[in-house]
Write a protein that binds this DNA or RNA. Structure first.
Lengths: 172, 172
DNA sequence: TGTTTCATGTAAGACGTTACATGATTGG
DNA sequence: CCAATCATGTAACGTCTTACATGAAACA
């Protein structure tokens, strides 16, 4: 139930509509916990029913401004205090690697090259975020966002290196 | 639909029952694409209905030995030839990092330390697999399995380093 | 006035998890 | 004969994706 907690977390220092939250997801949380429109609206309704958030105000086009309740804040803290369960790591790319020898040598190499390129592109994208963001501002990329971004940078760098290494391995 | 293709892939060089496949998942594919018992049996039934696999033989306790059909092999190759869609990376851990400042400084440090320990433990586990497996044997860990294992090793090493780095960052 | 942006909602279906349910065979 | 292992299946429930549907307000 991480989506629920992501929403609660985003509502800690602002009140927001589903529409606003959706944009926050697309910017700050996109690489960490993506969510679709229907999911966000659905979850907000449930959250309001449970009393973890309330509709603090209604705006122009049926806009509902949600605010975190005390119960919501308590739930968020409870979740953060929990020891997270180890989540099963699923990687379609690694699954393909398992069956790589069903491809021709050229195809294998092309696949790994492509993965390397992809990781490099993603890395560059994150680097741009790092350089463009104003880390002192109270946007959503606080110092914590910086930590998470660093993880992304390291992950993409590692992924590219691995793909290059793997390509070399299968060339022998 | 990766589960489907994982099953087809495992049936390339052996015929196997759902029970056998389940064990293969728990050993070789556990870290790449885990699957539950009900999922495996359900998918095999669908696969047989579609004609991608057939029941080649029936054994003792209602055991069904599945074999890959030509259509199944074709589908597997088609899938492997495809350019994989970039999959949304969800990480509960990184989501928690985003909201880390709702915890006390001690809790934050404890969380990151725990993550570092977890990554280190996972890394050690994979290293054991690397050292114990006989890579020349035709078990399921072929040279491809080696590539995938290397990814796991690098990923867990990177994760630990990141967590240690992050812990240092928040100490300042 | 017409296009863009804001804004919310629902429905169908795929995928995954956990739990329940059942029974045959093997080996000690 | 009893326990462990082999072996399959179903049902309920939660999550996520894609697509459909609708309309108000802002702005040019």
């Amino acid at each position: 139930m991480s989506l629920r907690h992501a929403l609660l977390g985003l509502l800690v220092d602002r009140t927001a509509s589903g529409y606003d939250l959706l944009k926050l997801f697309d910017t700050s949380l996109a690489h960490v916990w993506p969510a679709s429109q229907s999911q966000v609206y659905g979850e907000l309704t449930k959250l309001a029913e449970t009393g973890l958030v309330t509709v603090a105000a209604e705006g122009p086009r049926g806009r509902k401004d949600y605010a975190l309740t005390e119960a919501g804040m308590a739930e968020l803290r409870r979740w953060l205090g929990e020891v997270p369960a180890e989540q099963p790591a699923r990687s379609e790319v690694q699954l393909r690697v398992f069956f790589l020898d069903l491809l021709t040598p050229q195809q294998r190499l092309a696949f790994l090259d492509q993965q390397a390129e992809r990781a490099a592109a993603h890395h560059a994208e994150l680097r741009q975020v790092l350089e463009s963001e104003d880390w002192t501002e109270a946007g959503m990329l606080t110092s914590n966002g910086r930590l998470s971004l660093e993880f992304g940078l390291r992950f993409t760098a590692m992924s590219e290196e691995w793909a290059r290494w793997a390509a070399k391995q299968i060339t022998d």
